[in-house]
Amino acid sequence: MSSVATENRPETGRDVVASVRNVTKVYRLGGEDVKALAGVSIDFHQGDFVAIMGSSGSGKSTLLNLLGCLDRPTTGQYFLGGNDVATLDDESLSRVRGRYLGFVFQSYNLIQQLSVVENIAVPLAYQRPANPDGPELCLRLAKLVGLSGRLGHRPNQLSGGQQQRVAIARALVNNPHVILADEPTGNLDTATSLEIMDLLDALNNAGRTIVMVTHEPDIAARAKTVISLRDGKIESITHNG
């Protein structure tokens, strides 16, 4: 049983930026097929802030990998930026990631030998064609996340919250259609988590589409829509406020 998130949405008429249709993902583990996703359909609209929840084994990581174009579905379709991701080869997948997606990870995933501003600039290295305003844009984003004073710092000279801010700035530098956040506050204390969620809120209010995986209900509550997964299927869709 699949459900489409848009069916019972109050708002309509906004652009669909990403669309998952009847997606399944089957892994072979020790000679046995394991169905990680058993038919999921969701549309993501411009300006959505979606939290995906679920216990471990519910398929939320698999779904995030598919949404992140890091993996291809076994069956079904995933439309992103006009491409059916399921049919793309590895190189095109890379290009799609670089062009349409921004990633925020639980463990920040900054490159240790690069400075703050260089970390923000990493996705620009893989843009085709290159963005001529890259350096200026990186400085602007560093300012946006409140790290103007630490442009030359290395990740190990920053606190966890600051590192996550760098990661968020990096996720914005390619002006992505969707920002994918995988447990963005998982490694942070409560106060810092709130700061990061405030930042994501602000971005969402400015029109950014954010898809976030989390297992913390109070973090999920900050999203506009919460999708619960169980056994590879959508269990419920809740709209907050």
Binding site: D90, S94, R95
Partner: peptide, 16 residues
């Protein structure tokens, strides 16, 4: 390995 994963996620192709 981690850096390679990050770069791949951020859009680097195998060739890059």
């Amino acid at each position: 390995t981690r850096e390679i994963g990050i770069r791949r996620a951020l859009g680097a192709t195998k060739g890059e």
